[in-house]
Amino acid sequence: MNLIRLVLCVCAVFGTQLAQADATRYPLTIQSCNRDVTFNEAPKHAVSHDINMTHMMLALGLKPHMTGYSGISGWKAVTPQMKVILDGLPELASKYPSVETLLNANVDFFFAGWDYGMRVGGDLTPQTLTPLGINVYELTESCAFVMKRPPASMEDTYNDLRNLGKIFDVQDRANALIAHMQQEISEVQKTLPASKPRVFLYDSGEDRAMTSGRLGIPHALIEAAGGNDILSDIDASWTRINWETVVERNPEVIVIVDYSEVTAEQKQHFLETHPALQSVDAIRHKRFIVIPYVQATPGIDNVLAIQTLAKGFHPQ
């Protein structure tokens, strides 16, 4: 579902099904990973990092509160539809913004995540930005990099939408969006058979495979779509594994994340011709599913990912 249609659906749900939420009372304190963040008012110069977090903010109608975004065009993640939606909103950095870039743009709010624009010990962290007057809200799924967390679930994304709703005083939009996402996923799950194919997610890498363990959102998407994540026992988020592990666990379906300079077709060709993978069921039967980066990372397009994966896992 494209963003424009989604916003229309959300408006319909907001107008007919949900009771109005109480307005935000500032100062507001929100939990972000293992920190408390206090807002004295709704941010006026917000920046979102990466396409999935930018998508969330735009779906909540927060463009008037935004100074810009970062980390999208540098990874070749922009769709034609997204270009239209982003029109008039400047990209402050094609990959990673600097502290100076945020300060020069008078930014007062930075929505990013660990391994999604921020890294432990890096220049851009809540610890470096908060003293400069920039409040940071961390993507919930990414908190696994800085604290112990349960396996990823769609509740992580719902939590982010609820918190953004409170921070910007748009709780009604957030609640309506969450309700719509839950309804769409419920419709998919009503039709799922009991059988669950073994599934491996391939992001990138040749010497070793970049993939996701149970703390990354792909695990939640695979399970929600009626698949059996072969790495559900790996206590990690985005991580690398040896090809021997893939062979041993023998996935029946491989999900390829499409982004960056290496195309999905090139990734599939690499897998199909890798000498060590020729015994893998997914390779032998050519069972591949491609989803774009924005669907494989936490955000509103996770619904589309679950719909696509469910069809691919259970073509019957």
Rank of each mutant, 00 (worst) to 15 (best):
I241E: 11
P80M: 04
I291A: 03
S32F: 08
L62Y: 13
G213I: 01
V47D: 10
A77M: 14
H269F: 05
T128P: 11
M210C: 06
P218L: 04
Y69C: 05
I51C: 00
L92K: 00
V262Q: 14
T157C: 05
A77P: 00
F111Q: 03
L177M: 13
T157K: 00
M210D: 06
F14R: 14
P150V: 08
W243V: 09
D36C: 01
H55E: 15
T79C: 06
G15T: 09
V290Q: 06
F200D: 02
V290A: 02
K83V: 00
V99C: 03
A310M: 03
D229C: 08
P315Q: 05
D233V: 08
A264F: 03
E41F: 10
P275Y: 05
L3I: 10
D50L: 03
Y202K: 06
A282M: 05
L3C: 00
W243N: 10
T245Y: 05
Y96I: 12
V294K: 14
M66L: 02
S212G: 11
S204L: 05
S260F: 08
E272I: 03
E41H: 15
P151S: 13
I291T: 03
D172H: 10
F313R: 09
A46V: 05
D233P: 05
D203K: 08
L18I: 14
I134M: 09
P251M: 09
P27Y: 11
A23H: 15
L129V: 04
V7N: 10
A59G: 06
G216S: 14
G216P: 06
N52W: 02
P251I: 09
H65M: 12
H314W: 02
A282G: 04
P131C: 05
V294E: 13
L8P: 00
N40K: 10
Q316W: 01
T128R: 11
R208F: 01
G88Y: 07
A305F: 11
Y259D: 02
T245D: 14
T263R: 11
V10P: 01
D169E: 01
R240H: 13
L201S: 11
H314K: 02
Q20R: 14
T67P: 00
E223K: 15
D22E: 15
V253G: 04
